[in-house]
Amino acid sequence: MITILFSNVLIVGGIAFLSALMLYFISKKFSIKENPVLDKIEKSLPGANCGACGKAGCKNFALACIVSSREEFENLYCPVGGAETMQKVAKILGFKAPKKEPQVAVLKCNGTCDNAPIKLQFDKIISCRLANQISVGQTECPNGCLRLGDCVKVCKFGALKINEKTLIPEVDESKCTACGACARICPRGLFEIRAKGEGGKRVYVACNNKQKGALARKNCKAACIGCMKCAKICSQIQIKDNLSYIPSDVSAEKYGEELVKNCPTGAIILKNAQSKKEHS
């Protein structure tokens, strides 16, 4: 009995030992030498593999950083990690980090339930991209939000959600990394990645409607009608196709309140006006 037990232990132990030896040699022989710097850079990246930098995943971005020259590195930027991450990467490589303002996604539509009432019923359409192909949308605004939430589904950071009261998506500033996935998926291009602004204070036109004033107003109370009032306040503001565009370098501090006050339809939105006041 003892001998059987003993021989069993020997045989099984022997197999285990041999296998261990084999594994050891194989791992030695076929090991892949990884660049330690690459590993280091990859670790300092967010690891979301979102593709916002324009590369396919974080590893590819790290690779691009390594092979880049000093000038090329200036153009590489991880919008998710932001300046902090880029500083880390630059430190590893001995470069200077490119300076970029923190950015955030903004929705260029204010077609809420109140502003743009529902005129048509969507019957279980699963995606904005499909709805955009077949119809003008529930509000009949050809440029407005379709309210089906493709952007919410594509956001990897949970920064977007459809507000149940207004039915349009809302950006959660604290979570938004400005990766641009929403801007890419929105069939009507309603998201703009723009600078967060000083203290988060920013002013923009929350409308994308390019129709003439009367037509635009028919479907949405908050539509930009291209009335030129904002352009008179600040010369940087341009009106094109009956639609005003406020460049991100227009100071929200300086013009913000005046612009909002003077917009006859309420298409111009000033974000974080209150919090800024508390600071100052």
């Binding site: 048509l120 019923q121 969507f122 499909l130 709805a131 077949i134 529930q138």
Partner: peptide, 8 residues
């Protein structure tokens, strides 16, 4: 109110 849906 007319309904809108994708084919079929």
């Amino acid at each position: 109110m007319l309904k809108v849906s994708t084919a079929p």
